[in-house]
Amino acid sequence: MVPPLALDIDGTLTTPAGAVDPRVFDVLPAWDAPVVFATGKAFPYPVALCHFLGVPEIVVAENGGVVCVDDTVRFAGDRGRAERVIEAFEARGGDTGWGAADLANRWRETELITRTTADERLLREVAAEFEMEVVDTGYAYHVKTPGVEKGDGLELVADELGLSPTQFVAVGDSENDASTFAVAGRSFAVANADAVAREAAAVVLDESYMDGTLAALETLTTLGD
């Protein structure tokens, strides 16, 4: 028996260049337990990944802002307030770093993001004025509603599946994975993880990116045997 998984995407199922590692197509469809993609990405990205992997669409997106399980979608977070943060940020000379199409935010439901080249000090200052928070995932600055976390989404998913969150094994690489690590029964940070994720994880792996995730899954498979 193998445990259900809660997997981050960026930095965890990807190559160092940011592409989805093709090995996910060999490993995850064959995993004999539920697989939850818990990510900071906009909702359509993990849904599409599920689709192309041929696995059930069980998703915690936008850092817990969107949860999808059993064909039901739930939302938490205030996109409107995030929009006001970005508007004020830009009015004070801030630059989100996206082009006119802004494909990074076009499909976001509950939060907005900027590139990590944006003025972090100014962004945090403006966000605080609107009672919003900024989370640095290493890939973007997320302007999000306080108290909305991936870990909350995992608890909701587990309940819908008739499981305990402690039955899940979580793998991630960023500070936004710390809440997932806190509720999962076991947690692994890949070697490229930031300091917050490394501190929160039960195990810090020697391998980075998808190599680290595969090492964690191999450990779980061995224990299952």
Rank of each mutant, 00 (worst) to 15 (best):
A88L: 15
L161N: 04
A140Q: 01
E120T: 14
E62K: 03
F89Y: 15
A48H: 15
D102C: 04
V35A: 12
G97M: 04
E129K: 10
A91W: 13
G185V: 09
E218R: 11
A61F: 09
V55F: 09
N192P: 08
P56K: 08
G99V: 05
A6D: 00
G151F: 00
F168W: 02
P165T: 03
H51Y: 15
E125C: 07
A197R: 06
G18A: 07
S208P: 07
T166W: 08
A33T: 08
W31P: 04
K41D: 11
A202V: 11
V196E: 04
G138Q: 04
R84Q: 06
F89L: 13
M210A: 12
K144N: 05
V55Y: 08
G11T: 09
A38T: 05
A193V: 05
V2K: 10
A19E: 14
G77W: 02
T116H: 05
F181Y: 13
D225C: 13
A193H: 00
L161W: 00
A170E: 03
E57G: 08
P146R: 10
N192G: 08
R106V: 13
L122G: 06
S164G: 11
E207W: 07
V143D: 00
R115C: 07
V196M: 06
A19I: 11
W31L: 00
A104R: 05
R186L: 10
P3R: 06
F25W: 14
T114W: 02
T114I: 04
D177I: 00
T145A: 13
W107R: 15
L103T: 13
S174E: 05
R108M: 11
A30E: 14
Y139L: 12
T117M: 11
A61T: 10
L13S: 09
R121K: 10
D211I: 10
V69P: 00
G172P: 08
M132N: 04
A200C: 11
L217A: 01
A195Y: 02
R81Q: 06
G18W: 08
S187A: 08
A202H: 14
M132Q: 07
R121P: 06
A33E: 08
E109N: 14
H142K: 03
